[in-house]
Design a protein around this nucleic acid. Structure first.
Lengths: 342, 342
DNA sequence: GTGAAAGCGCTAACAC
DNA sequence: GTGTTAGCGCTTTCAC
C-alpha cells in the first residue's frame, strides 16, 4: 500500500506553501505559469491525486450529480443515461445513478441517499406511482437544483425536459386516421403520469379533428409490459366491434401485441394498423416494421445534463416556468401503411 | 438555505462531547444504550445528516463503487447494471457509473476519475479495444479491488464473473449441426476479446465433433452492429457456396441480418438457420423468433456486486485463480428449427 | 461510559 | 505572486 502524496508533500519538496500548490493545481490565475508547470510536473511524477473529500469538505461541492430513473434496463432510459454521462463526464461531473424500480417508496429512499451523499444536483424521471413531491423538497430547501426529465412532476422551482407528448399522441393518431382508420384503440399507461396523460390528450384532439366521438372502451390503461401486449391482443380478439387501428404507447408492448394478433390470424396492417412509441430497436426488426414515435433519448439526456450544469455554473439563465421541449417525430413504417402514397 | 446540523451542535445541545455523539451515531458498543437513544432522537428531530466527506476524510472509505461499462445503452449492460444497483443499494453502497464508449482511451480516463473519487472498488467490463492493464494497476497497488465481468482481462489479483462462452458457442453451433446444417458461418466480434474468442473455440469444437473442417471464410469478425448485420446478408447473397447455418454473436445484429436475408428472398430457417446471442428482447419479436443464448445479465450484475462487497467486507474468501462462471442456456426458437421433434 | 484533543487534506481569507 | 492560518466535520487514540 503506497503512501498518498498530499499538497504538503509537494509543497515541502518544492519549497513552496501548500496554498500555492493548491492554487496551482486548480489553475488559479494569480499563480505564475512557470510555478504551475513546476508543480504539475512534480505532481505527475509523484503520482499525486487530489483528495476529493478534503476538497469537498471545504468547498461544499461534490462534483457529483444524482440520477434517479424508474429502471436502468430499458432501452430508452439507458440511452438517456448515456447522453447524460457523456455531457457530465466531459465537464468533470460524476454520476451517482440509482433506480426506483417504479416504486415511490424506493424512489424516496434513493433521494435520501443522494441527499446524504451531498449531490450538487438531482435529475429524476419519476416512478410509476410517484405523486408526492415531499422527498424532493429537502433538496429545494437547501438550494440543490432538481430537474425532472421525461416523467415529470411540475413544480415552480424545478426544471423539466420532455417531449411534446400531446403532439406526439396527436401525430400518431392522426396518421392512423389519415390511413383510413375509424375505430382506433389506445393502449397506454397510468393516465396521471404526464407522458401518458398528454398522449391521450393528443389522441383525443386528433379524433375530435375528424369529428369522431371518443369511445372510452377503446382506451386501455395498462402497465405496458409484454404481458399487457399479449392481453390486449386477446381482448381485441374477443371484441365484437374490433378496432381497425391501434396506438400503443410503448414499442415492445406493441411488438408483442402485433405478434400475438398475427398468430391469431389478423393481418397487420390490413385488419389492424399499429403505431408504437419510442423507436426502440424492436420496432425495426418486427415484421411488419413498426410505425412509431422517435423519442430522442440521447438528446434528452444531453439536454437535461447541460441544463443542470448550466444552472450549477450560473452560466445559464434559469427559467422553470416552462419545460424544455424536445422534438419527437413520427416514423412511418409498414405496420400502419394502408394507403399507397399518391 | 438551512444551516447544516453537525455533531457539535448535537453535543452542545445535549451537553455531551462530540466524540460521544459520533460514537453513538455509529452504534459504538461502549456507549450507553440510553445515551444512544437520546442522541438518535435529537439527531432525527433536528434533521442531522452525517457529512460523508468529513467521515471519508478520516476513515478513507467512501462506500462508493465504480462501474465502467462499454456502453450504457445496451440491453445487456443495463440489465447487468440493474442487478448491480439492486445489491449495492441494499447494503448502502453507491454506484459511480461511467461508460468507455468502447474506447480504451476513455476507459483510461474513467478509471482515473474513479481513482480520484476514491472508489472502494471497481467493476469493469472492458472496451472493445482494451488490452493493456496499466490503468487498473494503480488500483491494485493501492489495494483497491478490481473485478471484471463479461468482457474481462485476466489478472492474478482480479476476480472475474463471466458465462462459459466456449460452451455457449459450442451449444449454439451444435444445435445448428443437429438441425442438419453443414456449412455454418460464424459472425462475431474482435477475437482477442474473451467473449468472442471463447465462443469461436466452442464453434470449432462443435465442428470438430462432427469431423467438419474449418473454413476460415466462414468466420467473420465484425463490430456486430446493425450495419454489420446488413453487410453480412449482402455478403451471403454474393457467395457462391452459401452457408446453411448462421451463428451471430449478437441478437440485434442477427435480427437485422435475418430481416435483410428475408428481403432478399431467403427462407429462414429453410435456406439459412440462424442462432443469435444474448436473449435480447428483439429475439422474441422478430419472425421467425430467434434462437439464442440466454445471457444472465441481471444475475451477472448481482453476482459481481455480491462478490465485490464480500471482498470488501472480508466476509468472503477471495480466490481469483478461477473466474466465477454463470450458467447460460440455449433457447431454441423458430429461426433454427429444421427438424420436427421426434 | 465519556471527554479532550489531534489531525485527515484541502481551500480561502487575509496578509505581504 | 506567494505565504500564513484557520477551519470544514468527523473519528480515534489516549486519558480518566
Amino acid at each position: 500500500m503506497e503512501k498518498e502524496i498530499t499538497i504538503y508533500d509537494l509543497a515541502k519538496i518544492l519549497a513552496l506553501s501548500p496554498a500555492t500548490v493548491s492554487r496551482a493545481l486548480n489553475d488559479h490565475p494569480a499563480i505564475n505559469a512557470k510555478t504551475k508547470v513546476l508543480i504539475a510536473e512534480k505532481a505527475a511524477e509523484l503520482g499525486y491525486r487530489s483528495n476529493t473529500f478534503a476538497s469537498h469538505l471545504r468547498t461544499r461541492k461534490t462534483n457529483t450529480l444524482g440520477v434517479i430513473v424508474p429502471r436502468l434496463n430499458s432501452n430508452f432510459m439507458s440511452t438517456v443515461l448515456a447522453g447524460m454521462e457523456e455531457v457530465a463526464n466531459n465537464v468533470g461531473y460524476n454520476l451517482l445513478i440509482s433506480q426506483s424500480l417504479e416504486s415511490e417508496v424506493k424512489e424516496r429512499a434513493n433521494a435520501k441517499t443522494m441527499f446524504n451523499s451531498r449531490v450538487d444536483g438531482l435529475l429524476v424521471s419519476v416512478a410509476y406511482d410517484t405523486y408526492s413531491f415531499g422527498h424532493f423538497s429537502t433538496f429545494i430547501s437547501r438550494n440543490i437544483p432538481v430537474l425532472f426529465f421525461d416523467r415529470i412532476l411540475t413544480h415552480p422551482q424545478c426544471g423539466a425536459v420532455i417531449i411534446d407528448n400531446e403532439q406526439a399522441g396527436y401525430d400518431a393518431t392522426r396518421h392512423l386516421l389519415d390511413q383510413g382508420c375509424r375505430r382506433i384503440m389506445h393502449v397506454t399507461g397510468d393516465l396521471r403520469r404526464n407522458v401518458y396523460g398528454d398522449r391521450l390528450e393528443g389522441f383525443k384532439r386528433a379524433l375530435a379533428g375528424q369529428n369522431l366521438s371518443l369511445d372510452n372502451r377503446l382506451i386501455l390503461s395498462t402497465d405496458l409490459s409484454q404481458e399487457a401486449g399479449r392481453a390486449v391482443a386477446e381482448q381485441i380478439d374477443q371484441m365484437q366491434e374490433k378496432p381497425d387501428g391501434l396506438f400503443i404507447a410503448n414499442d415492445l408492448c406493441a411488438a408483442i401485441c402485433m405478434q400475438a394478433l398475427k398468430e391469431k390470424g389478423y393481418a397487420i396492417p390490413g385488419d389492424v394498423a399499429i403505431v408504437g412509441f419510442n423507436n426502440d430497436p424492436v420496432s425495426q426488426v418486427v415484421s411488419p416494421q413498426l410505425t412509431t414515435i422517435f423519442y430522442p433519448g440521447y438528446q434528452m439526456g444531453k439536454t437535461a445534463m447541460t441544463t443542470m450544469i448550466g444552472q450549477l455554473n450560473g452560466t445559464r439563465p434559469i427559467d422553470h416556468s416552462e419545460p424544455i421541449i424536445l422534438r419527437s417525430e413520427l416514423i412511418i413504417r409498414r405496420s400502419s401503411i394502408l394507403l399507397e402514397k399518391s
